Simulated scan of single mutants.
Amino acid sequence: MQEFRLERPASVPSSSLSVRGIAWMLLLAVMWGLSIPVTKYGLQSVPPLTLTAMRFAIAVLLLFLCRIGKPTLTLRALPRAAALGILGIGVGQVAQAFGIQGTTASVGTIISATIPIFVVAFAALRLGQRVTGRQQFGLLAAFAGIGLVALGRNQAVGSVVSSDVVGAFWMLLSAVAIAFYYVWSVELTREYDTAAVAAWSTLFGFLALMPWCAWEMSHSEVHLTAGVVAAAAYLGVAVSVAGLFLWLYILKTVSAPVAASVQYLQPVFGIAAAAVMFGDTLGLLFGVGVVLILIGLALAVATRRKAEEAVPHE
C-alpha cells in the first residue's frame, strides 16, 4: 500500500505524456505489481504480522527522513491520522498478509486490483458521488470475477480449495479496508501535504501493530534470512515510499485519467511474476474471473473525474 489522493489542477493535458512519462508509469506498475508476489516470498519464512511490521518499520523511517525540515501535521490532525493508520495498516495490510499466506500470489494480485472499484462505492457513500449505471454494472462484474478467481485454480478439491477461499476472503477484506482508508483520507489530504499524512498514518499503524507482532513472534517460528530482509526492504522502500513519491511525480506530469491507467498494468505484472516465482497454474475459471474484474475496473473508474478523485493502487 501507499496510494494517496492528491488534489491538483485538472489542467494537465494528456498530450503531456512523453516517453519518459510512459517509462515512469511502467516502472511504477512493475514496482506495485510485484508487491503481492514479493510478500508471498517473504511469508515462506516469517509469519504475516512480522513481515508487515518489518516492512513498515523501514517505511516509517524513510518517510520521516523525507519530511525533515518540511511542514508536519497539527495536533488536531493526529487523531485522524492515527485512525487512518490503524485502518490502513492494522486492518488493510494485515488482512492482505494473511490473505497472501492463504492463497496463491496470482489470486492475491487480482483481488488486490479491485481496490479502485471499492473506492467508487465508498466515494458514493462518503462523498455523495453518484454511481452511474455503467459503474454499477462494473461493480457486479468485478464481484462475479472475484468469486471465479477464488475458485478458479487448477487444483484438487477439498481442503486446499477451502484454504484458497479463506485466503481470498482475507484479500477481499484487505481491499475493502484499504479502499475505505483512501476515501476517508480525502479531507485530511486536502488540508495537509499528502506525504505528511502518509508518514504519520504509517507511524501510528506501525505502533498499533507492534504488540500483536510481539505476540506472534513469541508463538511462531521466525527465520530471518537474507531473502526475507530483502523482501521487507523492497516492500518498505519500493512499494510504500518510492512508489508514493513516484506516483505524486506522475500526477504532476500527466492527466489523472492517464496516470490512473497504472491500475490496469499492475495485475499483469503481478500475475506474470507469480507464474515465474511460484509456478502458479491458472485455470479457465481464473482466466474468466480476471477478465470480469478488469472489465469491472474499467467500467467503474474510467469516468470523467476531477483529478483529486483519481486513485492509484498499491
Rank of each mutant, 00 (worst) to 15 (best):
L127C: 02
L224K: 08
G128N: 08
L63C: 08
G138D: 05
G108R: 07
I89W: 00
G90N: 00
G102E: 03
E309D: 14
K252I: 13
E191P: 03
L173V: 10
A95S: 15
G287P: 06
L284N: 13
L292I: 08
A231E: 01
T253Q: 14
N154Q: 14
A260Q: 07
A196Q: 06
R76G: 09
I115E: 10
S163W: 14
F286P: 07
G85M: 00
V60Y: 06
G138V: 03
I68H: 13
W215T: 10
A238E: 06
A298D: 05
L248K: 01
A232K: 00
M54V: 05
L127E: 13
R126P: 09
A177N: 05
P13V: 05
V229M: 11
F269P: 04
L284H: 13
R190D: 10
L62C: 07
T194F: 12
V157Q: 15
S174A: 15
P13M: 06
L265H: 08
G236K: 04
G236W: 01
D280H: 00
L251Q: 06
W32Q: 06
L207F: 14
S163E: 15
F169T: 09
I58Q: 02
F118H: 09
S218W: 03
G152N: 02
I117R: 00
S185R: 00
S261D: 13
V288K: 08
S14N: 13
A83R: 08
I115W: 05
S106Y: 05
R190W: 04
V12A: 12
L248E: 12
V288P: 06
L6T: 12
T39F: 14
P267F: 03
L17Q: 07
F118K: 09
V149L: 06
V239M: 07
L26K: 00
M217L: 15
L34C: 11
V119A: 03
A97R: 00
G158I: 12
